[in-house]
Write a protein that binds this DNA or RNA. Structure first.
Lengths: 215, 215, 215, 215
DNA sequence: CATGAATGAGTATTCATTCAT
DNA sequence: CATGAATGAATACTCATTCAT
């Protein structure tokens, strides 16, 4: 594609790939290495040198793909969250009723984090390392998740499946908070048990509440 | 020979010990200054020098009262959480029914953090800065809070106020998670609104659930 | 002797000794503790706090008896060297001939350091930690030792026991250097063997030289 | 594909490796600056910042070439001693007789230190700053020097030039100690006189001893 | 005199980021 | 584009010395 590399008389040497454009593969390697390292030792103790070594690139190369260390962290969250939310949305849409949609969303949330343990650790423990990240995340990605849930609830209210007197804005937080806490417990507990096993009791109490209806 | 040393009721003249004594007031000053600085810029960017300046002591003095920076952070959490949980327990015991106890606990949680905004910020955002802290906190203090809630729920189940088929271990996390998320949202949102205003809708959904009972 | 301590209404409590003057015993304790600590970890890594603890006094007390840490080190050398040199002189004078005097001096040097191992360590390894100390020591105490040896040699030359064509100033250094090196080797070697056992071969070569007289 | 990489005689383009290379010159500059600074103010008071400034590199650069401050000191001794001993060995071998070899070795010792005054200061005064260094030095480099001397003496004994009843192990120390003491005196005395001027009287007494053979 | 809490100057080392090759 | 040597700001912590009691 780019013939320069062949004819060049300069020190420009053999290059595997055809061009000299940023390689998406290299970017992915870096991202994956960063997830591993950040998850293993935490953002602040993570060293760029280690991320470079694991991704198989030089330190400087990381700065070609990311502005700086914080940007690397933020990019991971942005990209992963975007992917995940898109996936959640598309899956949820396949369900017919608001109740099924809600259940599916909770279920997906649990399954996803169970599958990607390193990422789970990042979300539950490292997300708050950067003020900028925290603020942006809570205003954009996190909000989007909550909005998705809000819509489902709204729909449920309109259809009469959910109580009409509930406060959507609170309920979505209640549900997110419940799921989030359950995941954090799992992450901190060294992930010895099955995260999806909490799905049943979790949805049960969220849907039917704590009070005994017979009394 | 010298009877002073035997009759003395204070530690004065117990053979040795003259000179200055460690002052609990100084310790409190340092703790308070640390809460302020940690909350303002975050644990990692906080500088011992600033904490010293604000507490009105020399840098070295901090190391008389605390082993190191991490120990300072950890001590704050341990002490504050202990105080708070004791307070929660004593207040909750004043209530007659499990339902009132639960409501009171949630209410206290919200009120306490609303009153001490800096501390709230620490709990919601800085708690996870230290691996050691996170682990210990989740195993001790956090657990104790959950246990308190667990007992209330158990009592409620026995009295038939709460549903008998619920999973206590999950429910306590659901409630904690819900409250916690609501507080985090408040902290991140720059605390513009009244945290206690969420008490009503929050307890409502937790108690009665999401589903419309008529359907 | 001093009744103040009994009648005093102030915080002045029972005091073992009669007076409140600087106690020579306390001074000795500090000196001895310092020798131990300096010898064990070296001057620069030695901490006043440890010396205080071992001597059984408070940190501040050390500063009543010594100006500062360097002064403590220097005082030890001055005092110990003075004592030792006086002792050497008096012992040497008991000998009749220059040859016996010289032998006795070397013998004393070896014996003294063998007996006080901690002190030996200080002299062989720590003496050069302080520029001031090094300079003073080499100009005063070390010189005095060399002078004593110089006199003996001079006397020996005059009596014809020692060669008349030797250079006193060099010879005294040669002998000191030889003894000193032998002691250093012993100190560094963890003092596993008997220092006095080198006396015979050491004096033999110093007195008769290396060359084979038959050739 | 690209033949450069195969034909290149330098390490240029061997697949990877571009960018700056560690420069031996830079290492030398740091070493030389360290010798100067260590000699001027002593190891403990020497500041890395100053060594960096004098070598014309950044502070961090020093840590690319040396593990830490102590390693810098140790490396200097190891490298310089190695060089010097190799030089001594090769020079000594040029001499025919054991006597000439011994004289040459003493002469070289004096000349070398006279030429490199800063280094002399380091050897005579700073060598004992680090326990690790002292121990290693006395077990390796110092020993090697003594061994060289020991071999010469042994050879001399066998040839009958030196007395057969002398103790090699002591004699080598006597000679080293004598030379060493003479150098230390010179270093401490601010090096006002000519070190090589002591060569004659020094060897004279070492070879012929102190006693008057006529008596 | 004695105490030990308080002080604060002093610095080796790390590591994100840059830049010559 | 890629490299990794070079940079240098930034800071927790120590410990000799002081001083209030």
């Amino acid at each position: 594609m780019n013939e320069y590399s062949f004819k060049s008389k300069t020190r420009r040497c053999a290059i595997k790939k055809r061009g000299r454009k940023k390689s998406p593969e290299k970017r992915r390697n870096i991202t994956q290495a960063a997830i591993t390292v950040f998850s293993r030792v935490g953002y602040h103790k993570a060293r760029i040198k280690d991320i470079a070594k694991i991704s198989g690139v030089a330190e400087g190369t990381i700065y070609i793909y990311f502005k700086n260390k914080e940007d690397l962290l933020i990019s991971i969250f942005k990209e992963k969250t975007r992917e995940t939310i898109e996936f959640f949305k598309s899956e949820v849409q396949k369900e017919a009723t608001p109740l099924d949609k809600l259940k599916r969303l909770i279920s997906l949330h649990l399954e996803t984090f169970e599958k990607e343990k390193d990422l789970a650790r990042l979300y539950q423990l490292e997300l708050r390392q950067s003020v900028r990240l925290t603020k942006e995340y809570f205003k954009v990605e996190h909000k989007e998740y909550l909005d998705l849930m809000g819509e489902i609830i709204k729909e449920g209210k309109e259809q009469g499946v959910f109580r009409k007197d509930i406060n959507e804005s609170i309920v979505k937080r209640v549900i997110f908070g419940a799921v989030d806490e359950v995941i954090t417990t799992w992450v901190v507990s060294s992930k010895e048990y099955d995260l999806t096993s909490v799905y049943e009791p979790l949805t049960d109490v969220l849907l039917k509440g704590l009070l005994n209806p017979e009394k």
